[in-house]
Amino acid sequence: MSAEAHATTLGMDHRKLAMWTFLGSEFLFFGAFVSAYLLYLDTTAGGPGVEIFDIPFTSVSSFVLLMSSLTMVLAHSAHSRGDLRRMRLWVLATAGQGMVFLGGQVFEFTVFYREGLELGGSPFASSFFVLTGFHGIHVFVGILLLLSLYTLSLTGKIKPNQDLKTEMIGLYWHFVDIIWVIIFTVVYLIPEIAVLD
């Protein structure tokens, strides 16, 4: 790989360029879901609307996800210094926070279901569940990647000098995080405040 990496036209690794290319397209993906959600904010078909959100609870899980970006970047930082032991630690911490976030989401979904917000209940409910659900799937894939990274670094498949792999998974993870930064504000906070007013 290395020989080719040096020969690249733009002087950067194919894989990193590919990851950024892919992330660029992901905005179009989440954007469509967010648009549908915004269009359907009031379309609750008599069922629960945004007032069902539990902002303090979601704030905590959002905060956990935000902080997982810190541990992720520390994992990459450790790896780039060749410190695989510390890298593994931070990777596990990141995956752990991801799981906490996902657990929170599962709990939140369960509560909402019990309170009558169901996927088939209204366009509002559909767009909420599908949007946050797809974000959850992205987090889940991220956790799988992190755990693979952890395992492969134990088996020696990932070497101290290959911090590009950690960086790539990090890019994906941070991306999933910034999508949540948007979702937290646009899906939860702003509609909730607008309703409270």
């Binding site: 269009l39 379309t43 078909a45 996927l119 088939g120 209940g121 209204s122 366009p123 559909s126 767009s127």
Partner: peptide, 24 residues
């Protein structure tokens, strides 16, 4: 996204495009 919504509507009972509940 459109196909996911269509699939969710047609197979999982979501309401993205169903005018009966206000879908567009």
């Amino acid at each position: 996204v459109a196909l996911f919504m269509l699939h969710a509507d047609a197979v999982l009972g979501a309401q993205f495009f169903n005018p009966a509940t206000g879908g567009d």
